[in-house]
Design a binder for these strands. Structure first.
Lengths: 106, 106
DNA sequence: ATAGTATTTCTAATATTCTAGAAATACCGT
DNA sequence: ACGGTATTTCTAGAATATTAGAAATACTAT
């Protein structure tokens, strides 16, 4: 991942509402959560939520799949993993800041 | 760490210039880097750099120690570690997004 | 005290973000 | 085709961020 991509993703997560959205989607697990359900949980205006969701989708942290009339949102773990990998590799000194370790994934 | 603190730190890192600053400080290692040296490396106006550095200092990601007339900047690994810990715990699903593992630090 | 280097604060212009109402679009069931 | 629910896009106002020049401050050496 390039620095600019990492920055864009960090910026996407760097807003309390969007971080709440992402965390909520992670907790929703594999089945995801419809936009409407997110809206109810976070108590935000529909247009505001849509705006923030788009910011997360654009950088790849969230994906959406349509199921009839509802749009189901999913946290994209692959992108989050890449982002964390970037941070550990580029923004941590070995030993100093690495209680977070990347094991070799087979 | 609370969600709002995490968001503030992610936002601080979510700007290409500031992410570059932070990464450069990490690479500078324990001795840190004077503001002036950072300025030369990143080729930014002094006032702009100072502004961005302040954003990183305010959220605790960077610390500064004065050495005579120069201010030396250091990446604060503790805060980065906390931030990564937050992301792994709150924003990852076990198994799905956890190539990043938190080992117990003795 | 003065001069010189390092850095910040002040200021202002431009750009971007955030918020949410209103209107538009997407999809389904009948 | 129509009505209803779900969601987005349009729009606009207020707030915040970004940039950098100019002035101010901090410190050291003489």
């Amino acid at each position: 991942m390039k620095l600019d991509d990492a920055a864009a993703r960090l910026e996407a997560l760097g807003n309390p509402t969007r971080l709440k959205i992402y965390r909520t989607l992670v907790r929703a697990g594999a089945e995801g959560l419809p936009v409407g359900r997110l809206q109810a949980k976070l108590d935000a205006a529909a247009s505001t939520l849509s705006h923030h969701l788009k910011a997360l989708v654009v950088v790849g942290l969230v994906t959406q799949t349509r199921e009839g009339t509802t749009l189901v949102c999913h946290a994209n773990y692959d992108v989050m993993r890449e982002l964390l990998g970037y941070m550990v590799e580029e923004c941590c000194a070995e030993g100093s800041c690495a209680p977070v370790v990347l094991p070799k994934v087979a």
